[in-house]
Nucleic acid binder design. Structure first.
Lengths: 122, 122
DNA sequence: TTCTCCCTCATACTTTAGTACCAATACCTT
DNA sequence: AAGGTATTGGTACTAAAGTATGAGGGAGAA
């Protein structure tokens, strides 16, 4: 019976193969594949005023008009502005009237609101 | 020589054990470990207005005064406000005058500026 | 009930804002 | 040189905003 030896050897082979598999599963550290997942965190951005150059240019304001607008936005009266920029009250009124037309508003309060909404003043 | 058989069997055992280990390493799927990396990203936060209740309460405004203030902040004239709230121009002026005192400002434009700065209007 | 706010409205007044002209100067472009 | 625009300023006027003061009614607290 030569088969007897073959079967015997085969069983030994099978046994030790399974033993090897078992040993392997016990000993091998799990192969770890790190998958880095980036998680975006929204930080409350603090008062980042970025001037909207596009909107500003659309209005076609002159330098002086824009200067006056900025002071208006800060709550200054025409008299205040005249003093700040060393102009006559008359001149300030001219600038304000002209910028109101360009901004399509009727009062300085509307100009303030719109200027802030368009992001052209802080 | 009985050792010859022992060694022979031992070698077979060792061979198949190693074969088992090799098979095991080939078959076991690498364990995937997700590593979450938090990445802080500054995104332009859109119009997050949060009312500053504290500052609002400090001013001690009445309901009506606060209503009027909100409309002023949106650029409305006294006449507009009177129509919106079904009040006489006279009453609106009374409210505005009173809230100016409480806010320690002299003009509505200053009230607008301060109200926005204190985060009590959007 | 009396006292105190709040809300309402009125009259009278002052101040600020806004409009509608016009005009001189300067600078830049055609 | 001529035309356009920006800047400045003036006068005269109207409109809106703001102040001062008084007053009546309502709601809630002492």
């Amino acid at each position: 019976m030569e088969n007897a030896i073959d079967i015997y050897v085969g069983l030994i082979a099978l046994f030790f193969t399974l033993l090897g598999i078992w040993i392997a599963t016990q000993l091998t550290k799990p192969r770890v594949e790190k998958v880095i997942v980036e998680k975006e965190i929204l930080l409350p951005q603090k008062e980042g005023f970025t001037l909207d150059q596009t909107e500003l240019e659309k209005l076609n304001l002159t330098n002086r008009e824009y200067e006056v607008l900025q002071l208006i936005a800060r709550g200054h009266s025409n008299a205040d502005i005249a003093n700040s920029l060393f102009l006559s009250l008359s001149t300030v009124k001219t600038h304000t009237s002209n910028l109101f037309v360009k901004m399509d508003v009727k009062r300085r309060t509307q100009a303030m609101e719109k200027a802030r909404r368009l992001q052209i003043v802080d």
